[in-house]
Amino acid sequence: MNIFRLSGDMTHLMSVIVLLLKIHTIKSCAGISLKTQELYALVFATRYLDIFTDFVSVYNTIMKLIFLATSFSIVWYMRHHKIVRRSYDKEQDTFRHLFLILPCLILALVVNEKFTFKEVMWTFSLYVEAVAILPQLVLLQRTKNIDNLTGQYVFLLGAYRALYILNWIYRYLTEKHFVHWITWISGLVQTLLYADFFYYYINSWKNNVRLQLPA
């Protein structure tokens, strides 16, 4: 494992911790898109089908379990926790999952490395992850006052994707046969979706003003 991959995993983990911190300490999920969180739960559920059949490393298994457990518990908190669910911006979070899920499923059935159930599900999870942030970005744009934790959460997610790209470049240069077009292209698309957010996030941080995205 290289430093980019490890940093990427750690920023991913930190993004989840920041979100759980917001939910547990402030008892609020204001500004967080339930649609995006449900898409992430779907991403991990379909990607980690091999969790008990193909052993990679202890690190790998533990991280998979963490991402599965946290993504489903976040969805549970936002939907069912009697205090947290009240802060959910239901009227603003209007993105339709199906518009993202259906094209991803069709694409995974057509463009994949091997036509097996596990492989198609794995590819589907990559496509869904690429676009899962969209409902969150739409919600951010509609939110007048984006709180610090929400801003940091999205920033950490974007940083995690950017670091994964560096990891792929590094692995391509150092490992033989490391060519994974589907992973790379969907990962690149995913990272590009954050470009606009990054621009405004860094500007607000530099000028020390509250983050606000233009409508």
């Binding site: 193909d54 990679v56 790998n60 794995w122 046969h177 490391f178």
Partner: peptide, 10 residues
């Protein structure tokens, strides 16, 4: 030799 996808990543 068969090329496996990068399942060692998260």
């Amino acid at each position: 030799e068969e090329q496996e996808t990068s399942k060692d990543e998260l």
